[in-house]
Design a protein around this nucleic acid. Sequence first.
DNA 1: ATAACGCGGACTAGTACACTCCGCGTTTGA
DNA 2: TCAAACGCGGAGTGTACTAGTCCGCGTTAT
Lengths: 179, 179
Amino acid sequence: MAHITTSIEYGIHCLLWLVGSGDRAMSSRDLAELQGVSPSFLAKIFPKLEKAGIVAASEGVRGGYRLARPADAISFLDIVDAIEGEKPLFDCQEVRERCALFAGGTPAWATDGVCAVHAVMLQAEKAMRDALAAQSLQDVATRFGRKVPDDFFGSVEAWVGDRISGRTGRARPARESPG
Amino acid sequence: MAHITTSIEYGIHCLLWLVGSGDRAMSSRDLAELQGVSPSFLAKIFPKLEKAGIVAASEGVRGGYRLARPADAISFLDIVDAIEGEKPLFDCQEVRERCALFAGGTPAWATDGVCAVHAVMLQAEKAMRDALAAQSLQDVATRFGRKVPDDFFGSVEAWVGDRISGRTGRARPARESPG
DNA sequence: ATAACGCGGACTAGTACACTCCGCGTTTGA
DNA sequence: TCAAACGCGGAGTGTACTAGTCCGCGTTAT
């Protein structure tokens, strides 16, 4: 099991689909089905991204989400903190205060400053956060864009457009007709 | 809650007490009571440190643990891995394979190499592990030693010696007598 | 007016962590 | 020699968090 959860993983993958989708909003359900993950679970993640100012929501029938700012201004750290809520890597139990030799009262020198063990963990956490902060959504999207075949994003556009118009009845009235 | 657990915290604090205690073994119960933590819980942690070659155990009535190698050859990363077992920071769900556009078969270009999101997380994990590997037990013990008053380690020696001899009856036969 | 949206609360199953308890074999010292 | 102090390991227990579902609400386009 991991400290960086699957919620974060799903969130990042969704945001990557939103990079370059311009002003067209995508619903969380479409993003879920496009990626083969649980729609109801994704629906729990997006409000967190919205409260953090990473995506902007539009309500109503053609509503959905789009990036609230340029993809190069959204770091992986932003996303992790938005979804997980800045949970520390390490939760210091202040063992140093409980030494048996301090029966009755802990001396001042023992609790002065940050616990030495805690300090090491904070340093490690900072190293991790710095690494996450150094990667933007745009970086990874660009890296991914170089891998895909030329017609891929065209296919995605078609798939999304097909779904929206299919639901609102402007096109494809035949398939999956009720009854 | 934290990914670096309290087991690791307790383990590190114990090992710090063992730095400089030379060839005298300390029992896990003494280490627990010296620090005010659960003896039975500590007893679950030490066998992991022993299997990892960080401490050496001696059995029997005056048995206990001592460091298996010099404190400057034991890094925080060694301890974390010994107790937690090298759990990854991130568990990739391979979302990229499940794209709805890949109905039936995922193309080779999509699964080529490491997932781009996973790659970022691996980089962040490496940054954290490097930071932990850069800190040795000796580093922190030295840093702590500069904080304590001159007679502190003497008091510790006395406390430990008192406990051992008190239990085996060589001294202090009076206090806490039964009945 | 209906249906697709986002929103949020309540709920569930599984798992991990912190912690306890017990019984075993080993070793020492009274 | 026998009890007590050790380490060792397995089997628990309670709590908390994660992943995931379900429902009803207000909003909005067709």
